[in-house]
Amino acid sequence: MSSPLYDDYLRIQKRRLRIVSLTRLSVLILFLALWELAAEWRWIDPMLTSKPSQLWTSFRELAFEGSLFKHTWISGLETLVGIVISMLLGTAIAVLFWWSTFASKVLEPYIVVLNALPKVALGPIFYIWLGDRYSIYGMAVAISVIVTIIMVESGFREISKTKLKLMGSFGATRFQMLRMVLLPASVPHFIATLKVNVGLTLVGVVMGEFLSSKAGLGYLIIYGGQVFQMNLVMVSIMMLALLSVILYGIVNLLARYARKKYNHES
């Protein structure tokens, strides 16, 4: 049995949450309405800004024609593959750094420089080396892998030395320490890294598509800009937003599952 005071507390908290969600929704609706009316009454030029009703029409056209979802699917797939590659590659390199202090000492300054380098500058190189399709993965991985290395490695460092000492007292090999302590203890860090990577990899994919591709949302945006079709540009951006929402959703599901499985707090 909960006390009446506690019930009151819960009720107030619930009402607060509801008010926040409602306000959120109203902000969106207000924004769309203002946009629509401003374009309708010619406060702004709909040629330049488009308007929600028009966007909806072009969305339906593009969707029924079939190409919009195809392009979204392509960008989504590229992003997923990019994330998987940079997580695996980044973790592998972070493990190498933990395994060999020598390697980590030697490579540390290079990582710092690579981290600061604007990866977009590498675009033309990827295009020449990897061709128009694979250069997108090159760009996506380039943007997210360095951050992955840095984040996973700092996670490894946080793990208490004494946990490893305990493993050592049983005579554990380095590989056993990795499997039984480092990787499971880093699960929260993997999740955090994944969250950062969703955003970064998406940037990389769109950037890659700007530079070279014949398909994907980045391509649609560039194409729409070139033929001056604001509707196409805006609809593609909306789809991009939708895509990131879906990807974040997936990561959050993964996070919840991992937290349950590995008993991590918070």
Partner: peptide, 14 residues
């Protein structure tokens, strides 16, 4: 068998 100064139980294992 060495029992360390702190317990160091792994929170990801029961």
């Amino acid at each position: 068998g060495y029992m360390l100064q702190h317990d160091h139980l792994f929170e990801w294992r029961d």
